[in-house]
Design a protein around this nucleic acid. Sequence first.
DNA 1: TATTTTTTGAGAATCATTTTCATTTTTATC
DNA 2: GATAAAAATGAAAATGATTCTCAAAAAATA
Lengths: 143, 143
Amino acid sequence: MKMILKKYCKMSGRSVTNQRKLLLDLIYRAKGHLDADELFRRAKEQQQRISLATVYRNLKLFKEMGLISENRLGENHSHYEIRSPVEHHHLVCRSCGRVEEFDSPLIDEARLRLQQQKEFDIFSVQLKMEGYCPKCKQKRKPS
Amino acid sequence: MKMILKKYCKMSGRSVTNQRKLLLDLIYRAKGHLDADELFRRAKEQQQRISLATVYRNLKLFKEMGLISENRLGENHSHYEIRSPVEHHHLVCRSCGRVEEFDSPLIDEARLRLQQQKEFDIFSVQLKMEGYCPKCKQKRKPS
DNA sequence: TATTTTTTGAGAATCATTTTCATTTTTATC
DNA sequence: GATAAAAATGAAAATGATTCTCAAAAAATA
């Protein structure tokens, strides 16, 4: 991670700061869907003086550099994760919030067809499906 | 539209107000992706005293009733449209903001497979692809 | 190391959206 | 149709996520 950060920063003329190293590392280690607040909380454990503004600034930067991706899984705020080499999508339980990741060759195929049909250059595919997970499905039955 | 509104309101014990009639009608006539502000502007042309809070309240209500759908096409705010009988998705140009709608049997297929595989009850599929439209694709070439 | 450039922290500002509450409109009842 | 009860509205304040400002600190460059 640190090497990657250095490389990307050099490339775009950015500084490599302790805050950036820490933040990217935390996102990497979280291996999940982290929101700005939670990232801020975790960062503060190691750098008490870090500011929420710095968190947002760098999330934006990492996104521009293509290191992370931003998703709207819930309603009002974003979640971030290391941009995995293999594109994947999200299946969210509307009841308990559980998030499953998936990918599908059918989606890739759809993308290719659409690209031809509409003559767009498509560089991003964001798919979110919502429903009830097996557990919550059960709970809802009685009602 | 008015009949539908009445039916849905009765069903859930809501009142049928002038504001609701106007708002739903405007969304219907817009035939596109309208945001709260633009809807508010248009509504004020016909009911000067209408409040932005009423716009938001009723967008929320229409959504709960399943009459409209909410999409995050841009960055910071939502767009709304009449929920079309056939589910469709969005292809957005990151340069000029142009929005194309599409749907694809491949997506439906993917949904079915996922439903089986993960044992979720899936009731919502939101797919957004981003890229450059034919025009903006051209403009970017020289750089 | 000195100088320039970039980033940071802290708090204020912004923007979309939601809430509060007194007043008005709609609905249900007679 | 009049009236009481219930729901919705307008206006303004509140909220929550995110962005901006600016002086001070850190990093890159010479």
